[in-house]
C-alpha cells in the first residue's frame, strides 16, 4: 500500500515539477517583458514629455481647444497627460504580451480576448473624449447665451445641457463596449425623457410670471420684449 502511495505521490510531484518547469519559462518571459515594458514606458514618458514641452504643446493645446487634457492632468499640463497616457498604454500592452507568452490557456485566452476587444475599448474612449469636449463646448455656449438673454438660471440650464450630452456620450460608449445593451437603452430613454420633462417643467413653472408679463406688455403696446440696452444702436 505504501508503495502505491509513494508511486502516486511521486507521479503527482513529477507532474507538479513538470508543470512548474513548463510554466516557469513563460513566467520568466512575462516578468522580463513586463520589466522591459516598464523601462520602455519610462523612457517613452520622459522623451515624449520633453519633446512636447520643447514644442510648446501646453500652449498649443490650450489654443486649439484641447485644454481638457490639461484639466484631467494632476499638474494641469497637457504634455504630462499625453506622456502618462503613452506610458500606461505601453505598460498595459507589455503586460498583455507577457500573459500570452505564459502559454497557459486561461491567461492567453484572457489576453487574446482583451486584444480582440481593444478596438471597441478605443472606440468607446474616443466617444467619451469627444462627448466630453462637445459637452463642455455646448455648456459654455448655453451659459453665455443664457446670461446675455438675462436668464437667471443660466448655470442650471448649462449644467443640464452638459449632462444630457455626457449621458448620451456615456450611453454610446457603453453600447460600443456591449454592456447591458437593452437595459442601457431603456434606462437612457427613461433618464433622458425624465431630464427633459424636468427641465421643461422647471423652466415653465419658473418663468410663468415672466412669460405672462411679456405677453401682457406685447398685448398692451405691441412692442417686442428687449434685453437691457437692446433698443439702442451701440455701434
Amino acid at each position: 500500500m505504501w508503495d502505491q502511495v509513494n508511486l502516486i505521490f511521486s507521479r503527482a510531484a513529477g507532474r507538479i515539477v513538470e508543470n512548474i518547469a513548463n510554466f516557469l519559462p513563460g513566467l520568466v518571459v512575462l516578468v522580463v517583458l513586463f520589466l522591459a515594458a516598464i523601462v520602455v514606458a519610462a523612457i517613452v514618458r520622459v522623451v515624449l514629455y520633453r519633446l512636447l514641452r520643447g514644442l510648446d504643446f501646453d500652449q498649443r493645446a490650450s489654443r486649439t481647444g484641447l485644454a481638457m487634457l490639461a484639466e484631467w492632468a494632476p499638474d494641469k499640463s497637457a504634455s504630462l497627460m499625453v506622456a502618462r497616457i503613452a506610458q500606461w498604454t505601453i505598460l498595459f500592452l507589455g503586460f498583455l504580451a507577457g500573459l500570452s507568452a505564459l502559454d497557459a490557456t486561461m491567461p492567453s485566452y484572457f489576453a487574446l480576448t482583451v486584444f480582440g476587444y481593444l478596438p471597441n475599448l478605443v472606440a468607446a474612449a474616443i466617444i467619451l473624449v469627444l462627448g466630453d469636449l462637445f459637452a463642455r463646448f455646448v455648456a459654455r455656449s448655453v451659459l453665455i447665451s443664457a446670461v446675455n438673454m438675462q436668464i437667471q438660471s443660466a448655470r442650471l440650464l448649462s449644467v443640464g445641457v452638459k449632462w444630457l450630452v455626457l449621458i448620451l456620450a456615456g450611453t454610446m460608449a457603453l453600447e460600443q463596449i456591449g454592456l447591458g445593451r437593452e437595459i442601457l437603452l431603456l434606462a437612457f430613454g427613461i433618464l433622458f425623457g425624465g431630464v427633459v420633462l424636468a427641465m421643461a417643467l422647471a423652466v415653465g413653472l419658473g418663468s410663468k410670471d415672466a412669460v405672462s408679463r411679456t405677453l401682457d406688455r406685447q398685448l398692451r403696446d405691441g412692442s417686442e420684449p428687449h434685453a437691457p440696452g437692446e433698443r439702442i444702436d451701440h455701434v
Partner: peptide, 24 residues
Amino acid sequence: EAPPVEVSQLVESFRLGYRELRDV
C-alpha cells in the same frame, strides 16, 4: 433724443454676468 435706458437693469445684467460667467 434716444430711447431711455434703465441703468438699474444694466447693473443687474452685470451682476448676473459676474455670478454666472466668473469662471469664464
